[in-house]
């Protein structure tokens, strides 16, 4: 839809509306539009690029805004800077293995339930809708999803303490707020990530801090 608006604007020599978009399949996480007050718009579990005009009635007014959050400064029009997410990942969103020298992929059996649960969390596309929907601008759904993915897998265990602490610390540094359990994040998440990942992250974080104290 915005393509058509922009094509028309260009014809009248008006600079088009800038918006982030890339894969248009709902997987790259580039979309960052608030549509009629809801990040990614009215359809549940759907990114803005996958939202079709048939979700609206003829004559409806559609309001489009950028994702708003203290940690996501606006660059231009609806484009925001989400590099804070990258910095959280850089702080601890990984398993510290170098390339090569890893054991055979089937060396460690992982219960199907654990790998499925890890996959549920790993489905996060890092779009930031959770932050935009939260009145506190909290990134806990995003961070919780990554912490949970690794907490579910044996590969994540050696660094679990350091990871939870480092990611949470970076999240605070970036200016994301706290969680007040409204679950708005879950409601707008295009990948259906559940708030239970936040509980899991809190548990990991608590156990990490207690371990450090003792």
């Amino acid at each position: 839809m915005l393509d058509i608006v922009n094509e028309e604007l260009a014809k009248t020599d008006i600079e088009p509306i800038h918006f982030d978009h890339d894969c248009r399949e709902g997987i790259c996480g580039m979309c960052s539009l608030v549509i009629n007050g809801v990040p990614h718009g009215p359809q549940a579990a759907t990114t803005a690029c996958q939202l079709h005009m048939r979700s609206f009635k003829d004559g409806d007014a559609i309001y489009i805004e950028p994702f708003r959050a203290r940690a996501f400064p606006v660059i231009k029009d609806t484009i925001v800077d989400r590099s804070a997410f990258d910095r959280i990942m850089q702080a601890g969103g990984f398993v510290s293995v170098n390339t090569g020298g890893t054991p055979d992929a089937n060396a460690i059996a992982i219960p199907k339930t654990a790998s499925e649960s890890a996959m549920d969390s790993a489905a996060c596309i890092g779009c930031g809708a959770c932050v935009a929907a939260c009145k506190n601008g909290s990134a806990m759904l995003f961070v919780g999803a990554k912490v949970s993915q690794f907490a579910d897998l044996p590969q994540g265990q050696p660094e679990k303490t350091a990871r939870a602490k480092a990611m949470v610390a970076q999240m605070d540094t970036e200016g994301f707020g706290n969680c007040s359990n409204y679950s708005e994040c879950e409601a707008v998440c295009p990948k259906d990530i559940k708030v239970s990942v936040i509980a899991k992250m809190n548990r990991e974080y608590l156990s990490a801090t207690v371990k450090t104290l003792s």
Partner: peptide
């Protein structure tokens, strides 16, 4: 495949 599993990639399992 070994490398990805070590990184925590949640491949489908039996």
């Amino acid at each position: 495949i070994d490398q990805c599993v070590a990184q925590g990639v949640p491949f489908a399992r039996e």
